[in-house]
């Protein structure tokens, strides 16, 4: 029986599967299907300092490889998340979660971190500088290394928990971005948020999504993200959490082989709510097949 434990910035989690922010709510919606305590951790819905209603409908479109969304960071605001949601979350989930925080100014991120960092359920902060669905925030910080570093430094200054930065594939020079973040004190990287995409209605020729564009996710982006991880892994020392199109245990193995220390899973769980427990069931068999006893030994296997 293989050992699935992995360590992220000194904190051990029992397996490398982390449901991704925005695809898992606060864990409650999966309780009808499986015990969410099976996962190593998960990342909560992107949280901003003020409550956000998100974008109008339609927020969802589809493509052959997955889906596009423009939800737009709908959330009740950091105070409500800390005071109302995290106490409820603790009743159903006993591990520590990633607090995904986003904003429209450096101060927004800083305040959000101040509110969520002390919470006992928060194990890591996940700095979302990569949401493609809000204007003047999110991804605007993730495409400019100076802005990204400024946000990171402000958040690091008020945090006690490890800070992971969730990057956007829209960054013009992702390697440079990741190196700049590492130098500025990032504890880890989450590669990647969604790709910016578009679908037009067949009959009208107009955008399907209310926000015109949306974030592309699902199995169709897996090889794209895999390539980015393979590209970044040799250039940084901090852990990388892979995120993009993972749907099977073999995808997890492949992404870890490219350099991921752990793997986030999003769209697969929306397409099939049972996909995460299925992957967890399959992983030990894969390790046995590969003759590997510790899954963490797979990280960066491509370079060994």
């Amino acid at each position: 029986m293989g050992n699935l434990n992995v360590v992220l910035s000194g904190q051990e989690i029992k397996n490398p599967l982390i449901p991704a922010s925005g695809a898992f709510g606060y864990g409650m919606d999966f309780l009808d299907f499986w015990d969410v305590n099976e996962v190593g951790s998960f990342s909560i819905k992107g949280t901003t300092i003020l409550p956000r209603e998100g974008n109008p409908l339609p927020r969802i479109a589809e493509y052959e490889g997955g889906m596009l969304n423009c939800v737009g960071l709908q959330n009740p605001g950091a105070e409500a998340v800390r005071n109302e949601i995290l106490p409820e979350l603790r009743k159903i989930y006993h591990g520590k979660v990633f607090a995904n925080i986003s904003g429209f100014s450096i101060e927004d991120y800083e305040k959000c971190a101040e509110i969520l960092d002390p919470d006992p359920s928060v194990g890591w902060l996940e700095l979302n500088i990569s949401c493609p669905n809000v204007h003047g925030g999110g991804m605007a910080f993730g495409t400019d290394p100076d802005n990204a570093v400024a946000v990171l430094k402000a958040v690091k200054a008020v945090s006690t928990k490890p800070v992971y930065v969730k990057c956007t594939p829209q960054a013009p020079d992702l390697t440079y971005m990741c190196q700049a973040l590492e130098q500025a004190g990032a504890d880890g990287l989450v590669l990647l948020n969604t790709y910016l995409g578009l679908r037009l209605d067949y009959r009208t020729g107009k955008p399907i999504l209310s926000n015109t564009t949306g974030g592309v996710s699902g199995p169709g982006i897996f090889p794209l993200v895999l390539q980015k991880i393979y590209q970044i892994y040799p250039k940084v020392q901090i852990p990388i959490i892979g995120c993009g199109g993972v749907s099977t245990a073999r995808d997890v193995i492949e992404m870890m082989s490219a350099g991921a220390a752990a793997v986030e899973i999003g769209t697969a769980g929306l397409i099939d709510p049972m996909s995460v427990p299925k992957i967890l069931q399959d992983l030990p068999r894969c390790l046995e097949e590969l003759g590997v006893s510790n899954i963490s030994d797979l990280t960066g296997r491509a370079f060994k």
Binding site: G22, A23, G25, F30, L57, I60, A61, V71
Partner: peptide
Amino acid sequence: EARMGCGFGACMGCSIK
């Protein structure tokens, strides 16, 4: 009626005010 992502609440793709 709404375009939905997951259908069971996780993605918030069909939220209305």
